[in-house]
Measured scan of single mutants.
Amino acid sequence: ASVAVIAAGTQGNIFATSALRSMRFLQILRMVRMDRRGGTWKLLGSVVYAHSKELITAWYIGFLVLIFASFLVYLAEKDANSDFSSYADSLWWGTITLTTIGYGDKTPHTWLGRVLAAGFALLGISFFALPAGILGSGFALKVQEQHRQKHFEKRRMPAANLIQAAWRLYSTDMSRAYLTATWYYYDSILPSFRELALLFEHVQRARNGGLRPLEVRRAPVPDGAPSRYPPVATCHRPGSTSFCPGESSRMGIKDRIRMGSSQRRTGPSKQHLAPPTMPTSPSSEQVGEATSPTKVQKSWSFNDRTRFRASLRLKPRTSAEDAPSEEVAEEKSYQCELTVDDIMPAVKTVIRSIRILKFLVAKRKFKETLRPYDVKDVIEQYSAGHLDMLGRIKSLQTRVDQIVGRGPGDRKAREKGDKGPSDAEVVDEISMMGRVVKVEKQVQSIEHKLDLLLGFYSRCLRSGTSASLGAVQVPLFDPDITSDYHSPVDHEDISVSAQTLSISRSVSTNMD
């Protein structure tokens, strides 16, 4: 405001104040949320940038038409019409005319000016109207692209899951042992070998009828009888010197917790746990005396209480009078009846079946994303299906024409109403129809010849004498029936064969 007042002088105070007050009108834009329509302006900018070359070309040609039209109309009207006294007036008329506004304040009066105005109007309006069409088509394409992008975003994750499931299904095939990355992934998420051994031990116990592997080994086996189970490696608790092959000598807290839970599941009659010990102070733990958990001091820290809870689970003690015997301790020893080589084939089979199920689920979810969402998608899918159906029908028609023997030239002739090819031409065609016709002709010829021969033979049998045999009239074959199959017997006289037959029969009768 200060700059405006200084620039306008003393009389500019009122002007500056009114100008600043008129800017209050811009507050109405906040009512229509114009300040939060950044996406709309961004869309407009992207459309203009995408079609910038077309817009520049249309505007450039339109500007050239405007300059030439205004100049030529000015030359034609400057002497006869006072409205075109300057080139600026003519340029104003050209702008209003070519933009199809047409105020009518300035019009050419001479015939030359009117002809020039009409010609440049028809030429220039087309170029001035091009930017509107370019922007409209650009907006339509952009909206369609955003629509497809939205659908693509919805299909991206199911497609990625389907590709991942397909690759993992491919890589978990037993015949592709060189693909090891997927197996490394499952090695990292699978439970430890100790848990798998416990699982298979329970399965084997159920197969043995509820007997433990130790009891199965204690059962008497006759001499020479084959053992029911192959000899396997035996594993004891981590306190002993022997372990399962492939295990580490260090046992983690999870393994100890699972070991304690498995020992508690063996039965309360074979294992008696004394009350857990509780320390009397955060600094020292008295293991010899058993106290109640309700006497825990409230001033303990979080670490002390955590250690106390761990001691409740991981440090059970047995009383002296209830101490288990050596046999019970041997039964409680952890027996590992299986090795990694025995378990891994079954584990890989389970993983393979899981990968198949996940692949089928991913495939079903991806197919669900291909379903249409709204009416536009339904129409688009219907149009695509219609085009596909037309293509299939056209391909089927082409194959039928190839089989029947109607080529493209014959199809055009039928469409024009011309006469089709004759039967002889159809026979000569190298097509399925021509071959079928040729075979039918040959079969008819053979059938006719057989009928003639059978009739001749029956007449010979009825006559009974050589004289009557020679008097029999043998009809000749019709050459038209034989089609294109020409037998060497067709052109010979059958009477010669009949005479030869009669001579042979007379000779045979004389010999008798």
Score class of each variant (00 low, 15 high):
Met174Arg: 09
Thr180Lys: 07
Thr180Arg: 10
Ala181Thr: 06
Trp183Leu: 09
Tyr185Ser: 01
Ser188Gly: 11
Ile189Leu: 10
Pro191Thr: 11
Phe193Val: 06
Asn208Lys: 14
Arg212Gly: 14
Arg212Leu: 06
Pro213Ser: 05
Leu214Pro: 14
Arg218Pro: 13
Asp223Gly: 07
Asp223Glu: 13
Ala225Ser: 11
Pro226Ser: 10
Arg228His: 03
Pro231Ser: 07
Thr234Ile: 13
His236Leu: 10
Arg237Trp: 11
Gly239Cys: 04
Phe243Ile: 13
Cys244Trp: 05
Arg250Trp: 05
Ile253Met: 09
Lys254Arg: 10
Gly260Ala: 04
Ser261Arg: 10
Ser262Thr: 06
Gly267Ala: 04
Lys270Thr: 14
Gln271Arg: 04
His272Arg: 08
Pro276Arg: 04
Gln286Lys: 14
Pro293His: 15
Asn303Thr: 11
Ala310Thr: 14
Ser311Cys: 13
Leu314Ile: 13
Leu314Pro: 07
Thr318Ile: 08
Thr318Ala: 12
Glu321Asp: 00
Glu321Gln: 08
Pro324Thr: 05
Glu326Lys: 13
Glu331Val: 04
Lys332Glu: 03
Gln335Pro: 07
Cys336Ser: 13
Asp342Glu: 10
Asp342Val: 09
Ile351Thr: 06
Arg352His: 02
Ile354Asn: 08
Leu357Val: 14
Lys358Arg: 09
Arg364Ser: 08
Phe366Ile: 11
Thr369Ile: 03
Leu370Arg: 02
Arg371Leu: 09
Pro372Gln: 00
Lys376Asn: 10
Glu380Gln: 14
His386Asn: 09
Asp388His: 07
Asp388Ala: 02
Arg399Gln: 08
Arg414Leu: 11
Gly417Ala: 08
Asp418Ala: 13
Lys419Gln: 11
Ser422Tyr: 15
Asp423Val: 05
Glu425Asp: 10
Met432Arg: 09
Val437Ile: 06
Lys438Met: 12
Gln442Pro: 09
Val443Leu: 14
Gln444Arg: 13
Leu450Val: 11
Asp451His: 14
Gly455Val: 13
Gly455Ser: 13
Gly455Asp: 08
Phe456Val: 14
Ser458Thr: 13
Arg459Pro: 14
Ser466Trp: 07
Gly470Arg: 14
Ala471Ser: 08
Gln473Glu: 08
Asp478Glu: 05
Ile481Met: 05
Ser483Ala: 13
His486Gln: 04
His486Pro: 08
His486Leu: 11
Ile503Thr: 06
Arg505Cys: 05
Arg505Ser: 15
Ser506Leu: 09
Ser508Thr: 06
Ser508Gly: 08
Asp512Ala: 03
Asp512Tyr: 10
